[in-house]
Write a protein that binds this DNA or RNA. Structure first.
Lengths: 113, 113
DNA sequence: CCTATATATTCAAATATTATTATATTTTTA
DNA sequence: TAAAAATATAATAATATTTGAATATATAGG
């Protein structure tokens, strides 16, 4: 059960192109920092910064393999969120029926759906 | 099909406590600005700013009812994302098997899952 | 124990986001 | 048509995020 603040925080931490790419790769398997250097066009320190942020929020973790840090996914909501983002919906939600009520609205009527 | 930048942008725009509350309410039905004033503890101009941001990103829209602006959801991914955030997973993802390979890793072995 | 490799940390500058305050716009109603 | 209700806009100040550059740490191997 995430609080409102925690839900916002989680999305905020994911919401960066580099971090999304990192998480997408981690859904496929373990990766070390220099693996990320191959496809992210940002500096190594910057990669480490993003990884630290994700880890400080309990989204990923790592184990050591010699001098490599092997990062892996921990938070199970991540693959599900990434899947939604890839999905294409093609349709907007149906517009509300002609004149639904808001608290102060004048026109009676029910919301469709 | 959202680009990487668009996916990050979408999450960034959702990722604020007030905006998440707004979107949660809009999944239930149409609401006007003064409806939001009842449960959001922020000023009216601030509410309008959040609504504008969401609308500029095509996430919500409104129709007029007299002098009320009745806002409603447009982007169909929103209810799905909000559902994921509420869901509780209770379990972390399984830790990777003992010694999975990264590109440079020394130990052979496959990633679990 | 010295060196190279892999990665992290720190600090500062640039930029972006957020909330506040004051003011403007639009529509209804008297 | 003037006032009021509902909402938006603009400008600013406060704060947070992001990146870059330099430096630090840790481990493996010689």
């Amino acid at each position: 059960m995430r609080s409102l603040g925690q839900r916002a925080e989680l999305l905020r931490v994911i919401a960066h192109p580099a971090r999304i790419r990192i998480l997408e790769e981690l859904t496929k398997g373990v990766k070390c920092v220099s693996d990320f250097e191959e496809f992210l066009e940002i500096s190594q320190p910057n990669i480490s910064q993003h990884l630290s942020l994700l880890r400080n929020h309990g989204i990923i973790d790592y184990y050591m393999d010699g001098r490599l840090r092997c990062y892996f996914l921990v938070d199970p909501v991540i693959p599900d969120i990434l899947k939604l983002l890839e999905q294409d919906y093609s349709e907007s939600l149906p517009a509300p029926a002609c004149c639904p009520v808001t608290k102060k609205g004048k026109y009676p009527g029910e919301m469709r759906r």
